[in-house]
């Protein structure tokens, strides 16, 4: 099952030159590999290892979360909204699952 990603802009339609916050939420359990289940067995690590944020196919930010990232993590960035464009987010986890989501940034 691919990783579900949600992308939101705040403000939703920024003015040209305004700061816009890009908020990304990934629906993922983010197992750190240190937790134990009811029978005392260690639950194997399974967390997102790489998340790329691209604007018009150019990498603007890359996150490499370690095991110490919460379940259903939030990733928030700020950028200057100079032009409209397409934001693409891709991610990859330890078991090889990937997720992808695109969102259009439009100016007011």
């Amino acid at each position: 099952m691919p990783i579900n990603l949600l992308v939101r802009f705040s403000p939703a339609k920024p003015k040209a030159g305004e700061e816009v916050r890009i908020q990304i939420v990934a629906q993922h359990a983010m197992e750190p590999g240190t937790r134990r289940d009811a029978s005392g067995k260690v639950i194997p690590a399974d967390h997102i290892t790489e998340l790329n944020v691209l604007m018009d196919n150019q990498l603007i930010a890359q996150v490499k979360p370690g095991p110490g990232t919460s379940a259903n993590p939030l990733f928030a960035f700020k950028m200057k909204a100079s032009k409209a464009g397409q934001i693409k987010v891709t991610c990859k986890d330890l078991t090889g699952q990937t997720g992808e989501k695109t969102a259009d940034l439009t100016l007011a």
Binding site: V63, T69, L74, F75
Partner: peptide
């Protein structure tokens, strides 16, 4: 980083065009 986590690295963010700002939620042991 967090001092007492088994793996002290919480995350690394490489910025390339966005403002020097980042917000997230982390686990602290």
């Amino acid at each position: 980083f967090s001092d007492k986590n088994a793996n002290p690295l919480l995350f690394t963010v490489i910025l390339n065009g966005v403002l020097p700002y980042y917000a997230t939620r982390v686990r602290v042991a």
